[in-house]
C-alpha cells in the first residue's frame, strides 16, 4: 500500500511518515502540488494525503489536476489547520474525499487510512 504525502512542511511529512510507516505503509513524499503530480504520473498510490497551502501548486489545484486528467482517482485526504466550513467545501469540490484538521492524532489517522485504502494493512 503506497501513500503519497504532499506537504511543504518537512516536519509534517516526517510526522505522517512515522505514523504510516509504523503501520506498514510505503510512503513517498512531495513538497508541493507540482512534484506530487509528477510522482502521481510515475507511480501508483493508494492514498494521497494533501496539504492545502504549498508553494508552486497548492493542494486544491493538485487535486483538481489529479481528478480532471484522470491521473489517479485514488482516495485523497486533505489536511489543513483550517477548520472553516468554506475550506471543507472547497476541498471536496476540488476532489478530496476527506478533510482532516491538523494535527491528526496517529490512531485516528490509522483508522481512516486503513478504511480508505480498503485493506487491512498489517
Amino acid at each position: 500500500m503506497n501513500v503519497l504525502i504532499v506537504d511543504d512542511a518537512s516536519t509534517v511529512r516526517m510526522y505522517h511518515r512515522n505514523v504510516l510507516e509504523a503501520a506498514g505503509y510505503v510512503v513517498d513524499e512531495a513538497v508541493n502540488g507540482l512534484e506530487a503530480l509528477e510522482k502521481a504520473l510515475e507511480n501508483t498510490f493508494d492514498l494521497y494525503i494533501v496539504d492545502i497551502n504549498m508553494p508552486k501548486m497548492d493542494g486544491y489545484e493538485f487535486l483538481m489536476q489529479l481528478r480532471s486528467e484522470d491521473i489517479d482517482q485514488a482516495p485523497a485526504i486533505m489536511v489543513s489547520t483550517e477548520a472553516a466550513e468554506l475550506d471543507h467545501t472547497k476541498a471536496f469540490t476540488a476532489g478530496a474525499n476527506l478533510y482532516m484538521v491538523k494535527p491528526i492524532k496517529p490512531l485516528q489517522m490509522m483508522t481512516y487510512v486503513r478504511l480508505l485504502v480498503g485493506e487491512e494493512s498489517v
Partner: peptide, 27 residues
C-alpha cells in the same frame, strides 16, 4: 451533491466511488 458540471467532476465521482468501495470492503 457537488456541482457535476466542473471539468474534473467525473474524476471526483470516480474517486468517491473508489472510497466507498474500499471503505466498505475494508470493514
Amino acid at each position: 451533491e457537488l456541482d457535476p458540471t466542473v471539468g474534473w467532476a467525473n474524476g471526483r465521482l470516480r474517486a468517491a466511488c473508489n472510497v466507498l468501495m474500499k471503505t466498505t470492503t475494508s470493514l
